[in-house]
Design a binder for these strands. Structure first.
Length: 195
DNA sequence: AAGATAGTCAACCGCACACGC
DNA sequence: TGCGTGTGCGGTTGACTATCT
């Protein structure tokens, strides 16, 4: 069902501007994450909750590493992909600072080709679903009853993040931000994240 | 130098799950 | 117990950049 708060507003799409980044970061730094769908408005953003969450998780969140993957990281991805398949979030949880989206992109852009090439170069290599993405075993992983790997909560990871790395909001956009609506439930798990 | 093609990455979409009521 | 809502995940798309012809 459509969310009323998003239905009544024209939502921006596409690339985020530095100003939007600044607003979202400043808002989360001050109030924490309490409801993605509702946060955007008081934060001064014409974005969907999903968009805000994605931007935060994949780009703005403190501790995110950008740039080239190290050899060790690549090897870890390859090893874990061999074991887990396209469970990018599970793989990401074992690579601190890397996001599932970044790993997924890196896999498709770099590692998959190399991995396939390596397999072709190894005539006796194990048949461990090397073309997993092509055989489309994707969605099964989400409901796989044999999966004993817990789905990591993104909120849990926040607790390990220091706010020191958050940019300081010197020109405080929050002056314009209206009072935060009722905060419910999930804010509690962000206590450690909040300064 | 200009157009075509390939590669990369940020972001969106749709689905499934978790949880509260 | 069923329903509604929010969140998380993986697949896919589209824009931008680099390289090739």
């Amino acid at each position: 069902m459509a969310k009323p708060v998003e239905k009544t507003r024209a939502l921006r799409k596409g690339a985020w501007s530095p100003e939007e980044d600044r607003k979202l970061t400043a808002y989360i730094k001050r109030y924490g994450i309490w409801n993605w769908a509702e946060m955007a408005k008081p934060a001064g953003l014409q974005r969907s909750g999903k968009s805000c969450r994605l931007r935060w998780v994949n780009y703005l969140r403190p501790g995110i590493k950008h740039g080239n993957f190290t050899k060790e990281e690549e090897q870890t991805i390859i090893d874990l992909h061999e074991k887990l398949g396209n469970r990018w979030s599970a793989i990401a949880s074992r690579l601190p600072g890397r996001t599932d989206n970044e790993i997924k992109n890196h896999w498709h852009a770099h590692l998959r080709k190399r991995f396939k090439y390596d397999l072709n170069a190894l005539p006796e290599s194990e048949p461990s679903e090397p073309s997993s993405d092509e055989t489309n075993q994707n969605s099964s992983s989400r409901s796989n009853p044999t999966d004993n790997i817990p789905r990591p909560s993104i909120l849990e990871s926040y607790s390990a993040i220091s706010t020191d790395s958050l940019p300081s909001s010197s020109s405080n956009p929050l002056v314009e931000i209206e009072e935060k609506p009722n905060i419910k439930g999930s804010i509690g798990s962000l206590d450690n994240f909040k300064a």
